[in-house]
Design a protein around this nucleic acid. Structure first.
Lengths: 217, 217
DNA sequence: CGAAGTCTGTCTACGATGTAGACAGACGCT
DNA sequence: AGCGTCTGTCTACATCGTAGACAGACTTCG
Protein backbone atom coordinates (compact mmCIF):
# COMPACT_ATOMS: atom_id res chain seq x y z
CA UNK A 1 0.00 0.00 0.00
CA UNK A 2 1.54 3.30 -1.16
CA UNK A 3 0.77 6.76 0.11
CA UNK A 4 -1.66 8.90 -1.80
CA UNK A 5 0.56 10.87 -4.18
CA UNK A 6 -1.71 13.88 -4.01
CA UNK A 7 -0.53 16.38 -1.49
CA UNK A 8 -3.05 17.45 1.12
CA UNK A 9 -4.61 20.87 1.14
CA UNK A 10 -4.18 23.82 -1.18
CA UNK A 11 -0.75 24.52 -2.51
CA UNK A 12 0.52 27.93 -3.65
CA UNK A 13 0.28 28.41 -7.38
CA UNK A 14 2.93 26.36 -9.09
CA UNK A 15 5.18 28.44 -11.31
CA UNK A 16 3.14 28.59 -14.47
CA UNK A 17 4.96 28.02 -17.69
CA UNK A 18 2.66 28.75 -20.60
CA UNK A 19 2.99 26.39 -23.47
CA UNK A 20 4.55 27.87 -26.55
CA UNK A 21 2.58 29.13 -29.52
CA UNK A 22 3.48 30.39 -32.92
CA UNK A 23 1.91 33.72 -32.14
CA UNK A 24 3.47 34.04 -28.74
CA UNK A 25 6.86 33.35 -30.21
CA UNK A 26 6.30 35.87 -32.98
CA UNK A 27 5.36 38.58 -30.51
CA UNK A 28 8.30 37.69 -28.29
CA UNK A 29 10.60 37.83 -31.30
CA UNK A 30 9.29 41.27 -32.16
CA UNK A 31 9.92 42.42 -28.60
CA UNK A 32 13.45 41.07 -28.73
CA UNK A 33 14.12 42.79 -32.02
CA UNK A 34 12.73 46.02 -30.67
CA UNK A 35 14.93 45.77 -27.62
CA UNK A 36 18.27 44.82 -29.10
CA UNK A 37 18.05 45.27 -32.82
CA UNK A 38 17.67 42.87 -35.70
CA UNK A 39 21.41 42.37 -35.90
CA UNK A 40 21.59 40.85 -32.45
CA UNK A 41 18.53 38.69 -32.78
CA UNK A 42 18.91 34.96 -33.03
CA UNK A 43 16.70 31.92 -32.89
CA UNK A 44 18.49 30.65 -29.82
CA UNK A 45 18.17 33.91 -27.97
CA UNK A 46 14.45 33.84 -28.62
CA UNK A 47 14.12 30.38 -27.15
CA UNK A 48 16.12 31.40 -24.13
CA UNK A 49 14.26 34.68 -23.72
CA UNK A 50 10.90 32.97 -23.43
CA UNK A 51 12.37 30.62 -20.84
CA UNK A 52 12.69 27.49 -22.91
CA UNK A 53 15.42 25.63 -24.62
CA UNK A 54 17.36 27.61 -27.20
CA UNK A 55 16.20 25.20 -29.88
CA UNK A 56 12.56 25.15 -28.86
CA UNK A 57 11.54 27.66 -31.52
CA UNK A 58 12.17 25.16 -34.26
CA UNK A 59 9.20 23.13 -33.08
CA UNK A 60 6.97 25.96 -34.27
CA UNK A 61 8.84 27.56 -37.12
CA UNK A 62 10.81 25.59 -39.64
CA UNK A 63 13.05 28.51 -40.46
CA UNK A 64 14.17 31.95 -39.46
CA UNK A 65 12.41 33.09 -42.60
CA UNK A 66 9.31 31.41 -41.35
CA UNK A 67 9.61 33.14 -37.98
CA UNK A 68 10.08 36.51 -39.62
CA UNK A 69 6.94 35.90 -41.64
CA UNK A 70 5.25 35.51 -38.27
CA UNK A 71 6.78 38.73 -37.00
CA UNK A 72 5.49 40.56 -40.06
CA UNK A 73 2.04 39.18 -39.38
CA UNK A 74 2.26 40.34 -35.78
CA UNK A 75 3.09 43.81 -37.02
CA UNK A 76 0.19 43.75 -39.43
CA UNK A 77 -2.14 42.77 -36.63
CA UNK A 78 -1.23 45.95 -34.78
CA UNK A 79 -2.90 47.96 -37.51
CA UNK A 80 -6.24 46.87 -36.08
CA UNK A 81 -7.94 47.19 -39.43
CA UNK A 82 -11.40 46.72 -37.98
CA UNK A 83 -11.38 50.19 -36.47
CA UNK A 84 -10.49 51.91 -39.72
CA UNK A 85 -13.10 54.31 -41.15
CA UNK A 86 -14.59 51.78 -43.51
CA UNK A 87 -17.74 53.85 -43.91
CA UNK A 88 -16.16 57.08 -45.08
CA UNK A 89 -14.84 57.90 -48.53
CA UNK A 90 -12.16 55.54 -49.75
CA UNK A 91 -9.54 58.26 -49.86
CA UNK A 92 -9.87 58.82 -46.17
CA UNK A 93 -9.83 55.09 -45.54
CA UNK A 94 -6.66 54.66 -47.52
CA UNK A 95 -5.04 57.61 -45.83
CA UNK A 96 -5.80 56.33 -42.37
CA UNK A 97 -4.53 52.90 -43.30
CA UNK A 98 -1.24 54.33 -44.45
CA UNK A 99 -0.90 56.57 -41.42
CA UNK A 100 -1.46 53.70 -39.05
CA UNK A 101 0.94 51.46 -40.87
CA UNK A 102 3.58 54.15 -40.76
CA UNK A 103 3.05 54.79 -37.07
CA UNK A 104 3.37 51.15 -36.26
CA UNK A 105 6.48 50.68 -38.33
CA UNK A 106 8.12 53.69 -36.76
CA UNK A 107 7.32 52.31 -33.35
CA UNK A 108 9.35 49.25 -34.31
CA UNK A 109 12.26 50.78 -36.15
CA UNK A 110 14.41 47.69 -35.81
CA UNK A 111 11.71 45.48 -37.29
CA UNK A 112 10.81 47.60 -40.30
CA UNK A 113 13.24 45.62 -42.43
CA UNK A 114 11.48 42.44 -41.50
CA UNK A 115 8.14 43.80 -42.58
CA UNK A 116 9.45 45.48 -45.70
CA UNK A 117 11.30 42.48 -47.07
CA UNK A 118 8.46 40.02 -47.40
CA UNK A 119 5.00 40.06 -48.91
CA UNK A 120 2.58 39.63 -46.05
CA UNK A 121 0.13 36.99 -47.15
CA UNK A 122 -1.63 36.23 -43.91
CA UNK A 123 -5.37 35.70 -44.19
CA UNK A 124 -5.89 38.95 -42.27
CA UNK A 125 -3.79 40.84 -44.76
CA UNK A 126 -5.45 39.33 -47.81
CA UNK A 127 -8.81 39.98 -46.29
CA UNK A 128 -8.02 43.61 -45.77
CA UNK A 129 -6.86 43.89 -49.34
CA UNK A 130 -10.04 42.37 -50.61
CA UNK A 131 -12.22 44.66 -48.54
CA UNK A 132 -10.24 47.67 -49.68
CA UNK A 133 -10.66 46.72 -53.32
CA UNK A 134 -14.37 46.18 -52.84
CA UNK A 135 -14.62 49.62 -51.31
CA UNK A 136 -12.94 51.28 -54.27
CA UNK A 137 -14.99 49.18 -56.62
CA UNK A 138 -18.13 50.51 -55.02
CA UNK A 139 -16.88 53.95 -56.02
CA UNK A 140 -16.67 52.88 -59.62
CA UNK A 141 -12.95 52.17 -59.75
CA UNK A 142 -11.95 49.11 -61.72
CA UNK A 143 -10.35 46.40 -59.60
CA UNK A 144 -7.17 46.55 -61.64
CA UNK A 145 -6.85 50.30 -61.13
CA UNK A 146 -7.72 49.98 -57.47
CA UNK A 147 -5.01 47.40 -57.00
CA UNK A 148 -2.51 49.68 -58.63
CA UNK A 149 -3.45 52.57 -56.38
CA UNK A 150 -3.31 50.48 -53.26
CA UNK A 151 0.07 49.14 -54.25
CA UNK A 152 1.42 52.63 -54.80
CA UNK A 153 0.25 53.80 -51.41
CA UNK A 154 1.60 50.74 -49.72
CA UNK A 155 4.99 50.97 -51.33
CA UNK A 156 5.31 54.64 -50.55
CA UNK A 157 4.39 54.05 -46.94
CA UNK A 158 6.82 51.19 -46.47
CA UNK A 159 9.56 52.96 -48.38
CA UNK A 160 9.06 55.97 -46.18
CA UNK A 161 9.06 54.06 -42.92
CA UNK A 162 12.14 52.16 -43.97
CA UNK A 163 14.00 55.32 -44.88
CA UNK A 164 13.13 57.02 -41.63
CA UNK A 165 13.92 54.03 -39.45
CA UNK A 166 17.21 53.40 -41.17
CA UNK A 167 18.25 57.02 -41.02
CA UNK A 168 17.46 57.39 -37.36
CA UNK A 169 19.10 54.13 -36.36
CA UNK A 170 22.17 54.75 -38.46
CA UNK A 171 22.54 58.34 -37.36
CA UNK A 172 24.96 57.71 -34.53
CA UNK A 173 26.85 54.90 -36.21
CA UNK A 174 28.24 56.71 -39.19
CA UNK A 175 30.72 59.51 -39.12
CA UNK A 176 29.72 62.77 -40.70
CA UNK A 177 31.38 63.00 -44.04
CA UNK A 178 33.11 66.31 -44.61
CA UNK A 179 30.75 68.62 -46.42
CA UNK A 180 31.61 69.17 -50.07
CA UNK A 181 32.61 72.60 -51.26
CA UNK A 182 29.89 72.96 -53.85
CA UNK A 183 28.51 76.50 -53.89
CA UNK A 184 25.01 75.06 -53.73
CA UNK A 185 25.76 72.87 -50.78
CA UNK A 186 24.24 75.27 -48.32
CA UNK A 187 20.99 74.79 -50.20
CA UNK A 188 20.93 71.23 -48.98
CA UNK A 189 22.10 72.06 -45.50
CA UNK A 190 19.54 74.80 -45.21
CA UNK A 191 16.76 72.59 -46.51
CA UNK A 192 17.74 69.75 -44.22
CA UNK A 193 17.67 72.07 -41.24
CA UNK A 194 14.28 73.40 -42.21
CA UNK A 195 12.56 70.05 -42.57
CA UNK A 196 12.02 67.34 -40.03
CA UNK A 197 12.98 63.89 -41.21
CA UNK A 198 9.41 62.81 -41.80
CA UNK A 199 7.80 66.12 -42.55
CA UNK A 200 6.90 64.98 -45.99
CA UNK A 201 4.95 61.81 -45.47
CA UNK A 202 1.49 63.33 -45.29
CA UNK A 203 2.37 65.68 -48.10
CA UNK A 204 3.34 62.77 -50.28
CA UNK A 205 0.24 60.86 -49.32
CA UNK A 206 -1.95 63.78 -50.25
CA UNK A 207 -0.08 64.26 -53.50
CA UNK A 208 -0.57 60.63 -54.51
CA UNK A 209 -4.26 60.66 -53.68
CA UNK A 210 -4.78 63.94 -55.47
CA UNK A 211 -2.79 62.70 -58.43
CA UNK A 212 -5.01 59.65 -58.63
CA UNK A 213 -8.15 61.68 -58.47
CA UNK A 214 -7.01 63.81 -61.37
CA UNK A 215 -6.07 60.80 -63.40
CA UNK A 216 -9.56 59.37 -63.17
CA UNK A 217 -10.68 59.73 -66.75
CA UNK B 1 80.03 34.21 -58.04
CA UNK B 2 76.33 33.59 -58.40
CA UNK B 3 74.36 33.30 -61.61
CA UNK B 4 72.43 36.30 -62.87
CA UNK B 5 69.02 35.86 -61.27
CA UNK B 6 67.30 37.46 -64.24
CA UNK B 7 66.06 34.89 -66.68
CA UNK B 8 67.15 35.28 -70.27
CA UNK B 9 64.75 36.35 -72.99
CA UNK B 10 61.10 37.34 -72.81
CA UNK B 11 58.91 35.40 -70.52
CA UNK B 12 55.19 34.89 -71.00
CA UNK B 13 53.12 37.28 -68.93
CA UNK B 14 53.19 36.26 -65.33
CA UNK B 15 49.76 35.61 -63.99
CA UNK B 16 48.66 39.09 -63.01
CA UNK B 17 46.94 39.43 -59.73
CA UNK B 18 45.44 42.86 -59.41
CA UNK B 19 45.80 44.43 -56.03
CA UNK B 20 42.60 44.76 -54.11
CA UNK B 21 40.59 47.94 -53.92
CA UNK B 22 37.59 49.05 -51.96
CA UNK B 23 35.68 49.60 -55.17
CA UNK B 24 36.72 46.36 -56.75
CA UNK B 25 35.63 44.49 -53.67
CA UNK B 26 32.32 46.31 -53.59
CA UNK B 27 31.61 45.42 -57.21
CA UNK B 28 32.67 41.83 -56.63
CA UNK B 29 30.42 41.65 -53.58
CA UNK B 30 27.51 42.92 -55.65
CA UNK B 31 28.20 40.28 -58.28
CA UNK B 32 28.30 37.58 -55.64
CA UNK B 33 25.04 38.76 -54.12
CA UNK B 34 23.45 38.84 -57.55
CA UNK B 35 24.61 35.33 -58.26
CA UNK B 36 23.75 33.52 -55.06
CA UNK B 37 21.55 35.82 -53.03
CA UNK B 38 22.16 37.95 -50.00
CA UNK B 39 21.46 35.08 -47.68
CA UNK B 40 24.41 33.07 -48.93
CA UNK B 41 26.83 35.95 -49.06
CA UNK B 42 29.68 36.09 -46.60
CA UNK B 43 32.81 38.09 -46.10
CA UNK B 44 34.95 35.00 -46.44
CA UNK B 45 33.32 33.92 -49.66
CA UNK B 46 34.03 37.33 -51.09
CA UNK B 47 37.70 37.08 -50.26
CA UNK B 48 37.87 33.62 -51.77
CA UNK B 49 35.87 34.62 -54.84
CA UNK B 50 38.33 37.35 -55.78
CA UNK B 51 41.18 34.90 -55.37
CA UNK B 52 42.60 36.08 -52.07
CA UNK B 53 42.55 34.98 -48.51
CA UNK B 54 39.09 34.69 -46.98
CA UNK B 55 40.01 37.37 -44.48
CA UNK B 56 41.54 39.78 -46.98
CA UNK B 57 38.40 41.89 -47.21
CA UNK B 58 38.87 43.16 -43.68
CA UNK B 59 41.91 45.10 -44.81
CA UNK B 60 39.60 47.33 -46.80
CA UNK B 61 36.35 47.30 -44.91
CA UNK B 62 36.15 47.30 -41.16
CA UNK B 63 32.77 45.67 -41.15
CA UNK B 64 30.14 43.90 -43.16
CA UNK B 65 28.09 47.02 -42.68
CA UNK B 66 30.93 49.00 -44.13
CA UNK B 67 31.14 46.68 -47.12
CA UNK B 68 27.42 46.95 -47.73
CA UNK B 69 27.73 50.72 -47.68
CA UNK B 70 30.21 50.22 -50.49
CA UNK B 71 27.81 47.95 -52.36
CA UNK B 72 25.12 50.60 -52.09
CA UNK B 73 27.52 53.16 -53.49
CA UNK B 74 28.32 50.83 -56.37
CA UNK B 75 24.62 50.56 -57.11
CA UNK B 76 24.24 54.31 -56.99
CA UNK B 77 27.09 54.70 -59.43
CA UNK B 78 25.18 52.64 -61.97
CA UNK B 79 22.59 55.39 -62.21
CA UNK B 80 25.12 57.41 -64.20
CA UNK B 81 23.62 60.67 -63.08
CA UNK B 82 25.66 62.71 -65.52
CA UNK B 83 23.58 61.54 -68.46
CA UNK B 84 20.28 62.53 -66.87
CA UNK B 85 18.30 65.27 -68.64
CA UNK B 86 19.60 68.06 -66.44
CA UNK B 87 18.55 70.69 -68.94
CA UNK B 88 14.88 69.81 -69.21
CA UNK B 89 12.10 70.61 -66.77
CA UNK B 90 12.69 69.31 -63.27
CA UNK B 91 9.69 67.00 -63.41
CA UNK B 92 11.21 65.11 -66.30
CA UNK B 93 14.56 65.04 -64.57
CA UNK B 94 13.04 63.60 -61.42
CA UNK B 95 11.05 61.07 -63.37
CA UNK B 96 14.06 59.82 -65.27
CA UNK B 97 16.06 59.61 -62.08
CA UNK B 98 13.41 57.45 -60.48
CA UNK B 99 13.02 55.26 -63.53
CA UNK B 100 16.73 54.61 -63.72
CA UNK B 101 16.99 53.87 -60.05
CA UNK B 102 14.14 51.42 -60.31
CA UNK B 103 15.62 49.69 -63.33
CA UNK B 104 18.95 49.28 -61.62
CA UNK B 105 17.45 47.96 -58.44
CA UNK B 106 15.32 45.48 -60.34
CA UNK B 107 18.41 44.29 -62.16
CA UNK B 108 19.87 43.44 -58.77
CA UNK B 109 16.90 41.97 -56.96
CA UNK B 110 19.02 40.28 -54.32
CA UNK B 111 20.80 43.51 -53.49
CA UNK B 112 17.79 45.79 -53.21
CA UNK B 113 17.68 45.19 -49.48
CA UNK B 114 21.22 46.36 -49.15
CA UNK B 115 20.46 49.59 -50.93
CA UNK B 116 17.15 50.16 -49.21
CA UNK B 117 18.42 49.69 -45.69
CA UNK B 118 21.02 52.40 -45.52
CA UNK B 119 21.14 56.08 -46.33
CA UNK B 120 23.61 56.47 -49.16
CA UNK B 121 25.87 59.32 -48.21
CA UNK B 122 28.62 58.99 -50.75
CA UNK B 123 29.92 62.26 -52.19
CA UNK B 124 28.37 61.32 -55.53
CA UNK B 125 24.99 60.87 -53.93
CA UNK B 126 25.13 64.08 -51.92
CA UNK B 127 26.29 65.91 -54.99
CA UNK B 128 23.35 64.66 -56.99
CA UNK B 129 20.99 65.71 -54.24
CA UNK B 130 22.45 69.17 -54.17
CA UNK B 131 22.20 69.56 -57.93
CA UNK B 132 18.64 68.37 -57.88
CA UNK B 133 17.70 70.86 -55.21
CA UNK B 134 19.37 73.64 -57.09
CA UNK B 135 17.39 72.70 -60.16
CA UNK B 136 14.09 72.88 -58.33
CA UNK B 137 15.16 76.06 -56.64
CA UNK B 138 15.72 77.62 -60.05
CA UNK B 139 12.06 76.88 -60.72
CA UNK B 140 11.06 78.83 -57.66
CA UNK B 141 10.59 75.93 -55.28
CA UNK B 142 11.81 76.51 -51.78
CA UNK B 143 14.67 74.19 -50.79
CA UNK B 144 12.65 72.76 -47.93
CA UNK B 145 9.77 71.89 -50.24
CA UNK B 146 12.10 70.53 -52.87
CA UNK B 147 13.74 68.28 -50.34
CA UNK B 148 10.36 66.97 -49.31
CA UNK B 149 9.38 66.20 -52.86
CA UNK B 150 12.64 64.49 -53.64
CA UNK B 151 12.33 62.40 -50.52
CA UNK B 152 8.82 61.33 -51.46
CA UNK B 153 9.89 60.24 -54.91
CA UNK B 154 12.91 58.43 -53.59
CA UNK B 155 10.98 56.58 -50.94
CA UNK B 156 8.28 55.54 -53.38
CA UNK B 157 10.86 54.29 -55.84
CA UNK B 158 12.78 52.29 -53.29
CA UNK B 159 9.63 50.98 -51.67
CA UNK B 160 8.42 49.86 -55.06
CA UNK B 161 11.64 48.18 -56.09
CA UNK B 162 11.83 46.42 -52.76
CA UNK B 163 8.29 45.15 -53.02
CA UNK B 164 8.79 43.85 -56.54
CA UNK B 165 12.12 42.24 -55.83
CA UNK B 166 10.88 40.58 -52.71
CA UNK B 167 7.72 39.32 -54.33
CA UNK B 168 9.51 37.86 -57.31
CA UNK B 169 12.22 36.22 -55.27
CA UNK B 170 9.81 34.84 -52.72
CA UNK B 171 7.34 33.61 -55.30
CA UNK B 172 8.69 30.09 -55.54
CA UNK B 173 9.61 29.75 -51.89
CA UNK B 174 6.21 30.12 -50.34
CA UNK B 175 3.29 27.85 -50.78
CA UNK B 176 0.11 29.32 -52.09
CA UNK B 177 -2.24 29.83 -49.24
CA UNK B 178 -5.69 28.45 -49.85
CA UNK B 179 -7.90 31.21 -51.19
CA UNK B 180 -10.40 32.53 -48.70
CA UNK B 181 -14.07 32.10 -49.37
CA UNK B 182 -14.97 35.76 -49.20
CA UNK B 183 -17.53 36.64 -51.86
CA UNK B 184 -15.32 39.53 -52.94
CA UNK B 185 -12.24 37.42 -53.23
CA UNK B 186 -12.55 37.07 -56.96
CA UNK B 187 -12.24 40.84 -57.13
CA UNK B 188 -8.68 40.49 -55.91
CA UNK B 189 -7.91 37.49 -58.05
CA UNK B 190 -9.31 39.19 -61.10
CA UNK B 191 -7.41 42.39 -60.40
CA UNK B 192 -4.19 40.52 -59.78
CA UNK B 193 -4.56 38.70 -63.06
CA UNK B 194 -5.23 41.91 -64.92
CA UNK B 195 -2.21 43.81 -63.64
CA UNK B 196 1.43 43.02 -64.04
CA UNK B 197 3.43 43.13 -60.85
CA UNK B 198 4.96 46.50 -61.62
CA UNK B 199 2.32 48.00 -63.81
CA UNK B 200 1.73 50.78 -61.41
CA UNK B 201 5.11 52.36 -60.94
CA UNK B 202 4.89 54.96 -63.66
CA UNK B 203 1.30 55.64 -62.72
CA UNK B 204 2.33 56.32 -59.16
CA UNK B 205 5.21 58.47 -60.28
CA UNK B 206 2.92 60.54 -62.43
CA UNK B 207 0.38 60.83 -59.65
CA UNK B 208 2.97 62.11 -57.20
CA UNK B 209 4.36 64.64 -59.62
CA UNK B 210 0.90 65.80 -60.59
CA UNK B 211 -0.11 65.97 -56.95
CA UNK B 212 2.88 68.16 -56.22
CA UNK B 213 2.13 70.44 -59.09
CA UNK B 214 -1.39 71.00 -57.86
CA UNK B 215 -0.22 71.64 -54.34
CA UNK B 216 2.04 74.48 -55.45
CA UNK B 217 0.25 77.40 -53.88
C1' DC C 1 73.12 51.29 -49.78
C1' DG C 2 70.66 50.10 -45.63
C1' DA C 3 67.49 50.61 -41.81
C1' DA C 4 62.99 51.62 -40.27
C1' DG C 5 58.39 51.87 -41.01
C1' DT C 6 54.23 50.91 -43.56
C1' DC C 7 51.12 48.37 -46.56
C1' DT C 8 48.92 44.18 -47.83
C1' DG C 9 47.76 39.74 -47.63
C1' DT C 10 47.82 35.30 -44.71
C1' DC C 11 46.75 32.56 -40.91
C1' DT C 12 44.92 31.11 -36.41
C1' DA C 13 41.58 31.46 -32.87
C1' DC C 14 37.07 32.28 -30.57
C1' DG C 15 32.44 32.62 -29.60
C1' DA C 16 27.89 32.64 -31.88
C1' DT C 17 24.75 31.13 -35.31
C1' DG C 18 21.30 28.26 -38.26
C1' DT C 19 19.82 23.98 -38.65
C1' DA C 20 19.50 18.64 -38.52
C1' DG C 21 18.55 14.91 -35.82
C1' DA C 22 18.31 11.83 -31.76
C1' DC C 23 16.14 11.54 -27.35
C1' DA C 24 12.69 11.65 -23.44
C1' DG C 25 8.81 12.74 -20.73
C1' DA C 26 3.70 13.92 -20.83
C1' DC C 27 -0.65 13.26 -22.64
C1' DG C 28 -4.64 11.24 -25.06
C1' DC C 29 -6.90 7.41 -27.10
C1' DT C 30 -7.97 2.60 -27.44
C1' DA D 1 -2.09 -1.15 -19.89
C1' DG D 2 -0.10 0.04 -24.16
C1' DC D 3 0.91 2.94 -27.92
C1' DG D 4 1.53 6.86 -30.77
C1' DT D 5 1.92 11.76 -30.87
C1' DC D 6 3.23 16.23 -29.14
C1' DT D 7 6.74 19.20 -27.06
C1' DG D 8 10.60 20.42 -25.26
C1' DT D 9 15.73 19.16 -24.57
C1' DC D 10 20.19 18.18 -26.01
C1' DT D 11 24.15 17.18 -29.03
C1' DA D 12 26.56 17.85 -33.27
C1' DC D 13 28.36 20.27 -37.31
C1' DA D 14 29.58 23.46 -40.71
C1' DT D 15 29.84 28.26 -41.17
C1' DC D 16 30.05 32.93 -39.86
C1' DG D 17 31.91 37.71 -38.26
C1' DT D 18 35.61 39.49 -36.24
C1' DA D 19 40.15 40.14 -33.49
C1' DG D 20 44.82 39.77 -33.62
C1' DA D 21 49.51 38.02 -34.64
C1' DC D 22 52.57 37.36 -38.42
C1' DA D 23 55.41 37.94 -42.79
C1' DG D 24 56.91 39.52 -47.11
C1' DA D 25 57.17 43.53 -50.25
C1' DC D 26 57.52 48.28 -50.88
C1' DT D 27 58.52 53.17 -49.44
C1' DT D 28 60.99 56.57 -47.31
C1' DC D 29 64.77 58.71 -45.72
C1' DG D 30 69.27 59.10 -43.93
Amino acid sequence: MTADPRLPGRLPEPPTRPTLTREYLAVAALALIDAHGLRKFSMRKLGTAVGFDPMAVYRYYVDQEDLFDGVAEALFTEIDVDTLPWDGPWQELARQYCLRLRDILLRHPHAVQVFATRPVRSPASIDTGVKMLAKLHADGILPADALRMVRCLREFTIGHALAIAVTKLGAERRSRKPRPDSPDYNLLAEAADATALDDHFEIGLTAILRGFRHSAD
